[in-house]
Amino acid sequence: MIHLTESAATHIRNFLENRGKGEGIRIGVKTSGCSGLAYVLEFVDEIESHDQIFEQHGVKVFIDPKSLVYLDGLEMDYAKTGLNEGFEFSNPNQKGECGCGESFTV
């Protein structure tokens, strides 16, 4: 299960409306950084047959089965703190992260 906060869902809906098309977003992981894995976000225009689909607050989130192993239980938020803003991930599978916060381990 993936959980989107209302703030994250609102931000994603705005992106999709400004873009003018899209079924939702895909969250995945890729090998990257000094800790091993990094989050990947991309728009979904065509649904893949193997996608797991989660819908909250009117937003569809697509995850491939390989990434779901690392992302099950993920909470995704959108926060603005001072001059910084962006998506924040709270992942119960995460055991550590690199010093710069760009990658994580499970």
Results as ranks from 00 to 15, higher is better:
residue 1 M to W: 12
residue 1 M to N: 12
residue 4 L to S: 00
residue 6 E to G: 10
residue 8 A to D: 02
residue 11 H to Q: 14
residue 13 R to W: 09
residue 14 N to T: 15
residue 18 N to Q: 13
residue 18 N to S: 09
residue 18 N to V: 14
residue 19 R to E: 06
residue 20 G to T: 07
residue 20 G to E: 15
residue 20 G to F: 11
residue 24 G to E: 05
residue 26 R to Y: 15
residue 26 R to V: 04
residue 27 I to Y: 00
residue 31 T to P: 00
residue 31 T to E: 08
residue 32 S to R: 03
residue 36 G to N: 06
residue 43 F to N: 06
residue 43 F to Y: 05
residue 46 E to K: 01
residue 46 E to D: 07
residue 46 E to I: 03
residue 47 I to S: 01
residue 49 S to C: 11
residue 53 I to M: 00
residue 54 F to E: 12
residue 56 Q to G: 06
residue 57 H to G: 09
residue 59 V to N: 05
residue 60 K to V: 03
residue 61 V to E: 05
residue 62 F to Y: 02
residue 63 I to V: 13
residue 67 S to N: 04
residue 69 V to Q: 13
residue 70 Y to S: 03
residue 71 L to S: 00
residue 71 L to Y: 00
residue 74 L to H: 01
residue 74 L to S: 02
residue 75 E to F: 10
residue 80 K to H: 05
residue 81 T to V: 12
residue 85 E to K: 13
residue 86 G to Q: 06
residue 86 G to P: 04
residue 86 G to L: 05
residue 87 F to P: 00
residue 90 S to E: 12
residue 91 N to E: 14
residue 92 P to M: 11
residue 92 P to Q: 15
residue 94 Q to D: 13
residue 95 K to Y: 14
residue 96 G to I: 13
residue 97 E to M: 14
residue 99 G to M: 06
residue 106 V to W: 11
